[in-house]
């Protein structure tokens, strides 16, 4: 993307030519400055990478090393997969992983569809019941029901122990609707008018004109939704009694929220040697991070673009 231009600069002092490296129109700084920048960047990268490395390394470390280090290790001396084996044995976690993937994919798709449709109709002045619906959406932004009313509603709808209870209550976020509506409103009306002259109906205008222009905002809202569905566990605590339907985060929580957080309660009288608690917790972090880390690079391009929308006009 950056163009390196080497150009001759002829100066008036006897025609001596001096070649200078230019990067995107700016002269390239000298070696010391570049070195300093490199060091600063290295430190910045290390600040990001080291915690990750510590998490992965600790998850692979054995008890002796964790004890010697007093918690986190930077490099496992005797790497082993005991922590992962302990978590993944018995099939509970792998099952929960499938549940979470299902909820995330289905939930994100449903959320995006509903939010897009709602935001688009609310972005067109004069659409059916425009004002009351907009006010209702805004109302839910400012007044949220409590845990118990929400629970009672879910229960009365017969959704307890159903995957739907993990999707429907959070499917349409008012704030998302407002962001998307604002984005749609920025799309020039002339484009819509032109489409209409060409004979397109509202649905065609949405799918052929508006959505292709809105990839960035869709990616952003989609990612936000996916992360929220992926990380959600509290609704499952309340609505899902059947542990076979628990999402990954809730199952992993049973490892993290261990005795350490509540003072020891009972010692395991069989004297079973479990992997170190710290390694288990870090292994859990890795397991729950991987899917998001896999998806993020593909969305990141849109994500960055989406963040800049509206920042600069022109």
């Amino acid at each position: 993307m950056t163009d390196t231009i080497i150009r001759d600069e002829r100066r008036g002092d006897g025609g001596r030519a001096r070649r200078q490296r230019m990067i995107a129109g700016t002269p390239q700084p000298g070696l010391p400055v570049r070195g300093l920048k490199g060091i600063v960047l290295l430190i910045a990268c290390a600040l990001v990478i080291l915690p990750f490395l510590a998490v992965v390394s600790t998850s692979l470390a054995d008890q002796q090393q964790v004890t010697e280090a007093g918690g986190y290790v930077l490099w496992p001396e005797r790497p082993n997969l005991d922590a992962y084996r302990a978590i993944l044995s018995g099939g509970v976690v792998s099952r929960a992983l499938m549940v979470s993937i299902g909820i995330t994919v289905a939930g994100t798709a449903l959320s995006l569809t509903c939010v897009t449709l709602l935001a688009y109709s609310l972005s067109r002045a004069g659409s059916f019941l425009h004002k009351p619906i907009l006010l209702t959406v805004l109302f839910t932004l400012f007044f949220t029901p409590g845990m118990i009313p929400t629970y009672l509603t879910v229960r009365q709808l017969g959704l307890l122990d159903s995957y739907w209870s993990l999707i429907l209550p959070t499917m349409v976020g008012a704030f998302q609707v407002i962001i998307m509506r604002a984005f749609f409103q920025e799309i020039p009306g002339e484009l819509v008018d032109a489409a209409r002259i060409d004979g397109a109906n509202e649905l065609q205008i949405l799918t052929r004109i508006v959505l292709p222009l809105s990839k960035a905002v869709i990616a952003v809202i989609g990612l936000f939704n996916a992360v929220a569905y992926w990380n959600a566990f509290f609704n499952a605590v309340l609505y899902i009694n059947d542990t076979e339907k628990w999402p990954l985060q809730l199952v992993l929580r049973t490892y993290v929220v261990d005795n350490a957080a509540f003072g020891v309660d009972t010692a395991d009288i069989a004297g079973t040697v479990m992997p170190p608690a710290q390694s288990l917790q870090m292994a859990i972090l890795v397991i729950s991070l991987v899917p998001i880390a896999l998806v993020y690079p593909f969305l990141q391009r849109h994500f960055a673009k989406g963040m800049l929308i509206g920042a600069v006009k022109g």
């Binding site: 409590g146 845990m147 929400t150 704030f175 952003v220 936000f224 939704n225 990380n231």
Partner: peptide, 20 residues
């Protein structure tokens, strides 16, 4: 937006606790 959801959940917990 994810912040929004988290804060909302926190809010649910707090109001829920009070409601109880």
């Amino acid at each position: 937006m994810s912040d929004m959801r988290i804060s909302r959940r926190r809010f649910l917990e707090v109001t829920g606790g009070l409601a109880a």
